[in-house]
Design a protein around this nucleic acid. Structure first.
Lengths: 252, 252
DNA sequence: GGATGGAATTTGTGATCACAAATTTGCATT
DNA sequence: AATGCAAATTTGTGATCACAAATTCCATCC
């Protein structure tokens, strides 16, 4: 068993890995617009490396579905149609439900404490209106559970699915939080983990994900346009294109 | 939606893709031994290409979990422990069950006919003792169903999971067939698809996979050794290493 | 005889180059 | 002003090279 079951191996210091992590973070932070074309040389230029590591990092992200390759051999951020959101919803319900079941059976006292802490921090951040911390802690809450399941392959696949939904969850963030989701669902999950009740933990996790992504699906049409209920603050236009913000290579 | 939802895009004529397909086939055919190290230059030499396309193809397979990268930065075929088989079993039950449900709702008359045909050919091949055709048709039967579900992302992830179990299913083939699996389960699946009974189709698919992989799990120990009930015909030793057979670049 | 240390070899990584496919640009024509 | 077409530019692909990390080999020593 490799030391790090996650895809972001901190022991890997290769440029390829650094580029991969940078792109992943930029993706999660919503710094690519839907349908935006990403060229190898542009990424290489921004990060100050040659094409070689960029190629490998970008190709990996294509393999993971985070980017898509077009027939004319250019790489773009995929558009998110309503059908694709629903497909991802059902896959995430199945796999993250499974992970929650496993976590209920395997989570240690310390791991449950960490999960509970993340849940508290979500509430705190949301009451402050701190969206960045909110999203970060939501992710932390979920992955603390999935890591506690102790299933490295399952974890890797779930990470891949988040990578595909991530950019859009971010794009729709204000609406997403306004959706009917309070801390109650999370508390029920934690309770089930504590009680080692795998069936309930799985079911509650499925409901949580199902509600969230059904809501997101209703914001997407069939042509790949995402339509936020309220217009987004600035520079982010719906539809294709819009200029890319630069992203920096994380500190080494 | 890309023309080919599968990972093996026939329209892609790049060397990278050809190397990827070659490695994939060699993997599925069991031409790599568990734990066997695979060097870039060896693959490049056998296929008569430079390192560049080999790197990208092999890295993609690492990203898909078909190979694993060691801390000393060499690429190997992962060992298959009992725990990993069980993990893959549960993931496959969840996702292939989901795919069967979707297929029950979406499969066309023609698609169901193709599924039925594959099921018949499995029976025929098995009665002839034709293992190669048997395995091929089993794969065809399953993927005909998953393709009928019309969910490209789901299909891609399932293909990735098969790529991880494939080499070992092959290794254990004689035992696997001897396991208590007849055509009955497959017929029940087809019946459910025909009746558009999603719940039953999903449940039957889960049972089929659950039975098969539980059986395989019992043949694996915790150290990564696969122990066939009867010794395998020849040159294939259990445990680490054993020389690699060459594999050829498919006709272009 | 087995352990040890350093040289020789193997092997992955990143940069660079040549080239062909795709895209954009710019100009001429209707 | 819209259209067609060729030149110019952009961009992905594959090969090659230099280099450092890892591995193997082999002589030497206890």
């Amino acid at each position: 068993m490799p030391r790090s079951p996650s895809t972001a191996d901190p022991a890997d210091t290769s440029l390829r890995q650094q580029v991969y992590v940078s792109l992943r973070e930029a993706l999660t932070a919503g710094r690519f617009a839907p349908g935006q074309k990403v060229t190898f040389r542009y990424v290489a230029g921004v990060l100050g490396v040659s094409l070689t590591p960029v190629r490998e990092a970008l190709r990996r992200l294509v393999a993971e579905g985070a980017f898509e390759m077009q027939p004319n051999r250019s790489v773009r951020l995929p558009l998110m149609t309503r059908a694709k959101v629903l497909e991802l919803r059902d896959m995430r319900m199945a796999l993250e439900g499974l992970a929650a079941e496993k976590a209920a059976l395997a989570a240690s006292r310390d791991q449950i404490a960490a999960i509970r802490r993340a849940a508290r921090e979500i509430v705190a951040a949301r009451s402050r209106g701190d969206g960045v911390t909110d999203r970060q802690k939501v992710r932390e809450f979920h992955f603390a559970i999935y890591a506690a399941a102790g299933q490295p392959t399952l974890l890797r696949v779930i990470e891949g699915l988040w990578l595909q939904t991530g950019p859009y969850m971010n794009l729709l963030y204000p609406d997403f939080v306004a959706s009917p989701r309070g801390p109650a669902g999370r508390l029920r999950i934690i309770e089930a983990l504590q009680a080692r009740d795998a069936a309930t933990a799985g079911r509650e996790m499925q409901q949580d994900i199902g509600r969230a992504l059904t809501y997101v699906a209703d914001l997407a049409d069939d042509t790949g346009n995402i339509a936020p209920a309220r217009p987004l603050p600035a520079r982010r236009r719906r539809g294709v294109a819009a200029g890319a913000d630069a992203f920096e290579l994380r500190a080494t």
